[in-house]
């Protein structure tokens, strides 16, 4: 399946992916209305130090431990896409305790949110990918199951 991949050599550390993600998942039409003057809760985040940076989001693991560990059965996997039913999440953070890539964080309402490859909005191609100015984030098939 197609996944979001990152190339750390190309990442500028500009954090635009975080803003594009938060906007795309806000459900709002206007970017200023969605983001201006507010804390943002993106499902992708930049990690790095002085010499390197890169974007971290859910890997949609082939054997996702978050799905197996969730205490409320909120996570599920369908056709390789790991998604969450936020109405079931109680914010226990067991998924944060087990995610080997540190890709999960709470959303604004205190329940878990995660990258669902922009399948629940109208973006088509994930917004972090479309908006990356240096093609450091791509959406490709690379042979993972």
């Amino acid at each position: 399946m197609k996944r979001v991949y990152v190339n750390e050599e190309w990442c500028l550390g500009c954090h635009l992916c975080e803003y594009n993600c938060a906007f795309a998942c806000s459900g709002l039409k206007d970017m200023a209305e969605a983001l201006k003057g507010k804390p943002i809760y993106p499902r992708i985040h930049i990690e790095g130090n002085e010499s390197i940076s890169y974007a971290v989001s859910c890997r949609h693991c082939t054997d996702p431990i978050c799905v197996k560990s969730c205490i409320s059965g909120a996570f599920s996997v369908k056709d390789g896409l790991v998604s969450i039913d936020q109405s079931k999440c109680v914010g226990c953070l067991t998924c944060v305790l087990v995610c080997p890539n540190g890709a999960l964080a709470l959303g604004e309402t205190g329940v878990m949110q995660k990258c669902e490859l922009c399948t629940k909005n109208e973006c088509g191609t994930p917004a972090c990918v479309t908006g990356c100015p240096n093609r450091a984030i791509v959406f490709e098939e690379r042979g993972e199951q």
Binding site: V96, L97, V98, C99, P100, N101, G102, L104, A105
Partner: peptide
Amino acid sequence: KNERAGIYTS
């Protein structure tokens, strides 16, 4: 401050 603690767990 337990962000990304799953990395330690793994």
